[in-house]
């Protein structure tokens, strides 16, 4: 088994809009080792979200190859890709993206609807996930009854409930105050350290990046690694 969870090989990505081609990546390479916690920083428009989309299998590269756990994923069919996302990846968004009509517990349960787990096993999983994010007492609350930080914790529980290897976070603290952001980031750190989740997190905030093991800087579609731990 290789040390790398994700390998990006010679990735090219461009969009064509009204006869104009926007090149985002050309010959981009990247390796994310298992149990890594990497922060991605860079100016707006540098391609951070696009990179996460490629890693998470919701977008496809124009050229090059993406391997996850030693297997190629960029050429999977639409439905296999969906199954891959459901089984291997947890997504955490800036604006939480919870379903407003569902309670916290039901939101967390959502990805489990795609599994073969029975009602009892699902309930157990949801309970554990909510315990991990310390929100057991809010299980029956709807998103509108929760603070931003609490909503993001529900989103984290939803991301980990099916026990994926990789968590992808796009500015997970972008909408939160510093203190709440710290709580969320510590939580991600714990998930990385104690549960061995590999995390790729996009952020604008150098303070947030400090919680990661390393930081990559993306600019004009290229990486420049800087060691911030010094």
């Amino acid at each position: 088994m290789s040390e790398a969870l994700i390998v990006l090989k010679d990735i090219g990505k461009h969009y064509t809009r009204s006869k104009q081609t926007i090149r985002i990546f050309e010959h981009l390479d990247m390796i994310v080792p298992r149990e890594d916690f990497v922060a991605i920083m860079g100016p707006s428009g540098s391609g951070k979200t696009t990179l996460l989309n490629l890693l998470g299998g919701i977008d496809r590269p124009s050229s090059g190859e993406i391997q996850f756990d030693g297997k190629r994923v960029d050429d999977l069919s639409e439905s296999r890709l969906a199954a891959f996302r459901a089984g291997s990846i947890g997504f955490i968004f800036q604006f939480y993206n919870l379903m407003p009509m569902l309670t916290a517990a039901q939101n967390v349960e959502l990805p489990l609807l795609l599994t073969k787990l029975g009602p009892k096993a699902r309930r157990e999983r949801v309970k554990t996930a909510l315990e991990i994010v310390s929100l057991s007492d809010r299980a029956r609350h709807r998103p509108s009854e929760l603070s931003g930080g609490q909503q993001q914790r529900v989103a984290i529980a939803r991301a980990i409930v099916s026990d994926p290897k990789l968590l992808l976070c796009d500015e997970p603290t972008g909408d939160l105050d510093r203190e709440t952001a710290g709580e969320i980031l510590s939580m991600l750190q714990t998930l990385n350290r104690d549960l061995g989740k590999t995390i790729v997190m996009v952020t604008h905030d150098p303070e947030a990046a400090r919680f990661a093991k390393r930081t990559l800087h993306l600019d004009k579609g290229r990486f420049s690694e800087k060691d911030l731990s010094a």
């Binding site: 969906a82 996302r85 997504f91 968004f93 959502l110």
Partner: peptide
């Protein structure tokens, strides 16, 4: 629109 995109992101197939 946004919610449907989120459901798809977390693995709901087009058929679902």
């Amino acid at each position: 629109t946004n919610e449907i995109a989120v459901l798809k992101t977390i693995g709901f197939t087009s058929r679902r």
